[in-house]
Design a protein around this nucleic acid. Structure first.
Lengths: 253, 253
DNA sequence: TAGTGGTCTAGACCACTGA
DNA sequence: CAGTGGTCTAGACCACTAG
């Protein structure tokens, strides 16, 4: 019996470190400020650099910090609310929807995509690459898969390459009557190509938004958009966004 | 094995390892199968255990693996699609919506929550805890914040504690006319209490779904639900879900 | 109690950035 | 070029689970 040390579970050092740093960020740092380098920080807290890095990684995952090789660690601004749903209730590319067409090609889709599109495997589809920028920062990279059956007027020959070609595919797609759509959000890690476009390292955490567009009784297009998980908050519904989660907030502004 | 390092850019070992393991999971393992332990795997690939762990962590983040201390590493089943929006287009707790009321209390909310609710700081609110189970596994833990003004008929005294009290709050809430709602999804890391409920370690990656419920011209309730990011795919819209992202799929079955 | 994953250390070297 | 974060190593011990 004696002392009740029920929850005297030794808290991991990196967890405690994260808490301490998090509070320091709230009270002693401003957005954009550069933190001391990892070696100094580790020494200051009396831990190995790897342990310090474990705490920093968590904070970066939560959008509190931003780290760049060769530069340093800075205090990240609050996550930017990115609207999902409003500009996608319609065909992609309709109106100026914050997306910018980058490129387009005709190629066989990944197996999983072919399954969702209900097209035979090895059946080439249009693949349109788009990127989304918000407040001057790249926030998302998208691959849009469009079966050739959805844009029958397009022939591979008479269209230019690059952004113009991508826009041509989107334009043709908009001729169909959109009957519905389907969306899913899950956590993923950035592929090398997406990472480059998002200005992150490969493997960076991303929110993968998969959207199926239905028309003519089938899946007429499939969008796979990867959003930077560290800097983005995906918002759904009418108003702009919610400024909430569990952690303490930076400021009211 | 001899590593193919003939790439122009030296690919990190853990990244290459992850690719190799991912392909092995597709071809040589079945769901639920136990992998060799980390020390053996590291030796087999000729890397340090920390490096091997970096690859495993990525695969776990992507929902390919499941690791449990004291047990081992197993091949995870495909992510379960969890519907968001359908059972939340209405007041929480309406119908049997897969959520289970756990507990309830009256306390001062976190500062960020008070801001969103537009209630004065230090103003106590009802806090209802619910958990969501899908296919026998806990997938989400929710904290629902309800200002006392939204449920005026409730007095703190005459209601029992525990689940019954939680259900009473929900029941009162449903008397209001829901005027709209607002949702946001972002990446977070599990707090200690949520982690315990989700059967994960603190800091585990979670998808935080924040929903504001509007009634009587104000925010009548705020829900903060944390979903296991490793096992969940949040689905929106009509049909059940999409089975797609970039990675190769396990099997159709 | 044996075996697992989780944490931690104290180094080393590499890739990248900016002056 | 110097300084940063990113990768990697070879250990050690701890917390947890199950037989």
């Amino acid at each position: 019996m004696g002392t009740t040390q029920l929850e005297s579970v030794p808290e991991p050092k990196y967890w405690h470190l994260k808490t301490v740093l998090s509070e320091a960020l709230d009270s002693e740092f401003t957005v954009g400020e550069i933190l001391p380098n990892e070696r100094d920080l580790a020494a200051r807290f009396g831990v190995a650099r790897a342990t310090l890095r474990q705490a920093l990684e968590q904070l970066e995952l939560e959008g509190r910090l931003q780290r760049r090789r060769g530069v340093g660690t800075t205090v990240a601004p609050p996550r930017v609310g990115v609207a999902i749903g409003t500009e996608h209730q319609i065909w992609p590319g309709t109106g100026d929807d914050a997306w910018q067409a980058v490129d387009s090609a005709v190629a066989a889709p990944p197996a999983a995509v072919a399954t969702a599109l209900q097209t035979p495997r090895e059946q080439a589809v249009h693949i349109v690459r788009r990127s989304r920028v918000s407040q001057g920062r790249p926030v998302a990279a998208e691959l849009l898969y469009v079966p050739q059956a959805s844009v029958p007027a397009l022939t591979a020959i008479d269209t230019p390459s690059g952004p113009a070609r991508a826009r041509a595919v989107l334009r043709e797609l908009q001729r169909l009557e959109l009957e519905g759509q389907d969306r899913a959000v899950e956590l993923g890690s950035a592929r090398a190509d997406d990472a480059k476009e998002l200005d992150r390292l490969p493997g960076a955490p991303v929110l993968v938004v998969t959207t199926r567009f239905f028309a003519e009784g089938r899946t007429a297009a499939l969008s796979v958009a990867t959003y930077r998980a560290d800097t983005c908050r995906l918002t759904f519904g009418a108003s702009g966004g919610v400024e909430i989660h569990d952690g303490p907030e930076r400021q009211a502004s």
